[in-house]
Design a protein around this nucleic acid. Structure first.
Length: 123
DNA sequence: ATTATGACTCCCA
DNA sequence: GTGGGAGCCATAA
């Protein structure tokens, strides 16, 4: 059950694509929900005419149901912050710190330094 | 049937 | 730099 708005045209396919992309993020790097959404939607030919109303939330929904093999912790919001509901129920921050990613005093990751650039991937 | 609730981002004050 | 509102609808209760 997607925690977000609407569902993609093909939820199963969308999930698979999200996980495929997330799996490409190397340790020590992070990507934003919007970034993943843009890649996946473009790849699947989904028109994002409604602005960014859907995509990022769909990604969140996909990550909520992802297998353990997916490094979901490397996906954060556009502010460089972790956006889990409960927050304390997750060890996302610990996982990222274990990869060498540093958080500032406000609990944010510096995207200028750690953002993953998907330039080498032929989507 | 109706209500509450989202793993978000953008834009403007 | 921060903060609030809009966009927008599938599920669960």
């Amino acid at each position: 059950m997607p925690s977000g708005y609407t569902s993609p045209p093909d939820r199963h396919l969308f999930n698979a694509k999200v996980w495929e992309v997330v799996q490409q993020i190397p340790p020590g790097k992070v990507a934003t929900y919007g970034q993943i959404a843009a890649i996946v939607m473009k790849s699947l030919g989904i028109d994002d005419s409604k602005g960014r109303a859907y995509g990022p939330r769909w990604v969140g929904g996909s990550l909520a149901a992802c297998p353990d093999s997916i490094p979901w912790q490397r996906v954060i919001n556009s502010q460089g912050k972790i956006s889990l509901r409960g927050g304390s129920e997750s060890n996302q921050r610990s996982l990222l710190e274990a990869e060498g990613i540093e958080f500032d005093s406000l609990g944010r990751i510096d995207l200028e330094i750690y953002r993953w650039e998907a330039t080498d991937i032929p989507w």
